[in-house]
Computed example of a mutant assay.
Amino acid sequence: MSFTLNQLALLLIALAVGWLLGLMMSGRGKYRRLWRDEQVVQRAAIKDRDARIEAANARIAELERQSGPIGAGTATAVGGAVHGRDDLSRINGISQTQEVALNEAGYHRYGQIAAINAEQEATLEARLGLKPGTIAHEDWRGQAAELERGHKPGLFSRLTGSA
């Protein structure tokens, strides 16, 4: 049986590829060592992450044991007291995003909204992208005054003008 030159070349190429694959797959190969090193680093990172999560959960449990129960409305009251702000979104017509814009404009309390004049009203309407006259139409000043006094403004009181 005789081989042609092409067949011998293909046989040598197949042998070389097999030899290279064998080296790569062996435990002494460079890539195998790098892969094992990467696995060790990954396991260590996972253990570290799990330890941090466990420590955080233990800290949360400790803080929950130390604090008393939180009643309804406590979070809003504490947030307002800590930051010195009222919840302006309680005024009908003010959304959460508009409340943020009002805070950025320097309006943090109901008393500030109740005390705005017509010029400031027009400036706020332009800043919030509202139609002119919206603040007066929705009676933000009256609602803010009611909230400042501790009353929740209702539709009946706004329609009749009574407190």
Rank of each mutant, 00 (worst) to 15 (best):
H151E: 15
M24K: 13
S95G: 14
G129P: 00
L130K: 07
S95I: 03
W140Q: 00
Y107T: 04
N6C: 04
T134G: 01
L130N: 07
A14N: 07
T4I: 02
F156E: 06
T97G: 02
G154W: 02
Q143K: 07
A45F: 10
A51M: 10
A9D: 09
D37P: 00
S157H: 08
L159H: 08
L11K: 05
T76I: 11
Q42T: 15
A115C: 07
H137Q: 08
E138S: 06
L11C: 02
N103G: 09
Y31W: 13
I91E: 05
N57E: 07
A58L: 11
M25W: 13
G22I: 11
S26K: 09
T4C: 00
V78M: 12
L12M: 09
Q66T: 07
G71V: 06
K30F: 14
A45M: 12
R149K: 14
S26R: 12
Q112D: 12
V82Q: 00
V41W: 11
L23Q: 15
E38T: 10
S162G: 12
E38C: 04
A101L: 12
R36F: 05
D139F: 04
R59A: 15
I13E: 08
E64G: 03
E146D: 15
A55G: 10
A145K: 13
Q42S: 15
S67E: 00
A163G: 05
A58H: 03
G84Q: 07
A75D: 03
